[in-house]
């Protein structure tokens, strides 16, 4: 465990989100028409614009807004099957949210550690955080998550 902790935490998948103080999702943007796609295509893969009236094949990374509003939400009360990697035994339920970003995409994600469906509502504001998903032989692997933005004063009620 000590060895794992000494290694640097790295994103579970490369190029989908930035890390640091203000992490963001990274979409790909068509250089011809500006259509955004998340997740971005793998770096070595060809990218054909999803917009049917555009034949663009060039794209560039585009960071998305950090905050959005909950389109809908749920949770996993049972352990999902592989390739999900469980990190606790017994399994601990986690929440999931589909979040509408100002750019006009709805993006799924797990909800930040410590928050459940009781902390969520359709339309509520959430922001992106990066947290540990699991550890593998290379160390800690991280993932983007949605964290409820709790208004001052509301915290006392929870």
């Amino acid at each position: 465990m000590t060895a794992a902790r000494d290694m640097t935490a790295i994103p579970v998948i490369e190029g989908w989100f930035t890390t640091g103080e203000e992490p963001r999702l990274v979409a790909s943007r068509c250089t011809a028409c500006g259509t955004l796609v998340f997740p971005p295509p793998p770096p070595e893969a060809a990218s054909f614009c999803r917009n049917p009236v555009c034949d663009g094949e060039q794209h560039e990374p585009a960071e998305l807004s950090r905050a959005g509003r909950v389109w809908s939400y749920t949770d996993a009360q049972y352990q999902p099957p592989a390739p999900y990697v469980p990190t606790t035994d017994p399994f601990e339920p986690f929440a999931l949210a589909a979040v509408e970003l100002p750019e006009g995409l709805v993006v799924l994600g797990q909800v930040a550690d410590g928050y459940g469906v009781r902390d969520l509502a359709v339309g509520a504001e959430v922001e992106l955080v990066v947290e540990s998903l699991y550890e593998d032989e290379t160390g800690e692997r991280t993932i983007w998550r949605w964290k409820p933005v709790v208004e001052l004063g509301e915290e006392a009620d929870q």
């Binding site: 939400y73 749920t74 390739p83």
Partner: peptide, 17 residues
């Protein structure tokens, strides 16, 4: 499944909610 643990019922639940 690997990144989110997103099962089929979880999608159905989003629509239900």
């Amino acid at each position: 499944f690997r990144l989110l643990g997103m099962t089929n019922p979880a999608y159905f639940a989003l629509y239900a909610r």
